[in-house]
Design a protein around this nucleic acid. Structure first.
Lengths: 198, 198, 198, 198
DNA sequence: CATGAATGAGGATTCATTCAT
DNA sequence: TATGAATGAATCCTCATTCAT
């Protein structure tokens, strides 16, 4: 069974198994043994590839944030010369990408957030991910708005994205993509057009 | 050491100790032994008052949601005849009440949310709390907006509240009350005045 | 089964069980489960009384060193006004007390010594025990010898005691008390009478 | 990377790595993986050269005892026609050879001794090494002393050597060679000159 | 000759819960 | 009403060993 070059394969298997476990039983009950069973490997192998359970969880969260980052950036690249509004809506859309709103991902995000407040490693990942999104949004707002207002707009849009996403996660129902797009588009337009109103 | 009438005192002691424990070490590491130590009682007593650990956690979450409910309703009562905007802003303000935005409460909320997706008891509490807030908001919006739009507005405002609140929890910094009020007020006004725009 | 005031009883049971386990299978194979079984209690109770396995081992070593200390001091008290030689021989005799030379104790000492070089807690206990014995010996030699020679004599007598004891432990045979007494008495007399020879 | 003739090289690498590991982290924490890392080879190779971990440990102890044996014999050969005292002092000196009193060797000796009481293979090696040294000493004493006294003298000198050596190991300080030589020389002279005194 | 992937048993530790007092 | 002694299951982690390549 032991082969060479298994590292990337095993890592992916185990990260996927972790996401599935978190989705089905929650992070608290996602034990090493269960994750290994889902991945079809022995429990011991986890320490071989991720050092310990925390290492696996961090790698999993890193994977989820990378997927979000990719969903956002790939959309922006396709709109290189578009208007700020179009680009902001694309960023929002990236956050509502299929990879992010399916059940496993939403539960993983929520679990990671809760854990990140007491686990330094996860906390760092969360901060990095958040700051990236925020600066991406603020950068676009700054093309139209003065600095202070752009920051506020970015802050508000991140909050709205997270809030919509959080509600979807907690409701247990499928993500209401249409409502989310309507509300975020309203927010973006309001911010961009009322540049002088506040 | 009175032998009778200890029930409310002990329950409060233990709920407060639970909130402190969640704040300092997280729900995962908030063991029965640690909570009991913080409350200055023995570990065995918890089963006497709350049956088991889950009972204590549910009681704690019920306490937190009741505080939120009270913060909102007490504000609304003082504005019985005010305008929808004023009442909506009061509801928002209730969500940003001191009792809700201090560190212990925000961490507890986030922890409860993460747990509520896999623990039926907590899930029910979360849903009840959410629906109460949503219907309170929608009720006010309905005084100005048609049903569908009022529902969407309520949904969006809940999302924004939760999002702002979530960001504050994750950032580790004090809640930026001014930014939160500016953004939510903008949202409320936009929804109320642009009733025809969507 | 749970009673009040069990602490000293349980601690003694567990320390004795630890010594037996070290004697029979060695410190490396003296697992928590095995020690608990010998003591007739559950494994979990060890953390209740000793925090963890290391705590139990330290308590056990502390117990062994205390027995040595007691064997020495009780002999000295009975010889309050005796000659230096008599008192020195009594100290040696304390080190060869039954409590020290039975198999369990000798193996425990050797195991603790080996461990003490990499476990700070045990290292401290070992140093304390050694220094006490050394200063007790040097104090008696100083009644006859000048400081430097008294120190050397004490150092040498400690080495001889430990060496005899070590050989007995490693040989697997019963302690040869007669040979040990002959050799140590020779050493003591030589040091005391040849005060000028070196 | 020659494919043949690697055996002696690899064995030496691994034995040295084992001694270093025992010195730095102790025998208990000297894992196969760690030893292999220190030797710059993979963990799997150990079973190839030493069958299993125990084989490696026995080979390492055999190496240490061989060094001791060599330090003693090489000194004796240079003193083929010398007096008993000179030869006895040479034997002692061999035991205090640099190869024996540096930190790694002392810790290895102590660790092996502790293990030898529960591991038959190591126990045999320890006994062989001890008997060799003892008979070498007794042989020299017999040139001057009657059998019983020579045995006792040899036994005592071994004990003193081991005791001095043990104290040095446990103290953590450099070996006090001068004190050791003074004490052992005193012992040797006392035994040789007081042949009638006991 | 050499690697490192993989296993699986074994051990320490944690912890909610129970229960005699 | 309250304690804390005691249990035992559950979990993470370590590690020697095996084996395909």
């Amino acid at each position: 069974m032991p082969k060479v070059g298994m590292q990337p394969i095993r890592r992916r298997q185990l990260i996927d198994a972790t996401l599935n476990a978190i989705n089905e039983v929650g992070m608290h009950d996602a034990t090493i043994a269960q994750i290994a069973r889902r991945a079809g490997v022995s429990a011991g192998i986890i320490s071989h590839y991720f050092r310990d359970k925390n290492g696996l969880l961090e790698a999993t969260m890193r994977d989820v944030t990378a997927q979000l980052r990719h969903a956002v950036l790939s959309r922006l690249q396709r709109l290189a010369d578009a208007s700020p509004e179009a680009r902001l809506r694309a960023i929002v859309d990236g956050n509502f990408d299929d990879s992010q709103i399916h059940s496993a991902a939403t539960k993983a995000w929520l679990a990671f957030w809760a854990s990140s407040m007491h686990q330094p490693g996860l906390g760092r990942l969360q901060q990095i991910s958040h700051r990236r999104l925020l600066s991406t949004l603020v950068f676009e707002f700054r093309r139209t708005l003065p600095p202070a207002q752009a920051r506020l707009a970015g802050y508000g849009l991140v909050a709205m994205i997270d809030g919509l996403w959080l509600r979807a996660a907690l409701s247990g129902e499928p993500f209401n993509l249409e409502a989310a797009r309507t509300l975020t588009t309203q927010f973006i337009r309001q911010q961009l057009t009322q540049a002088h109103s506040n």
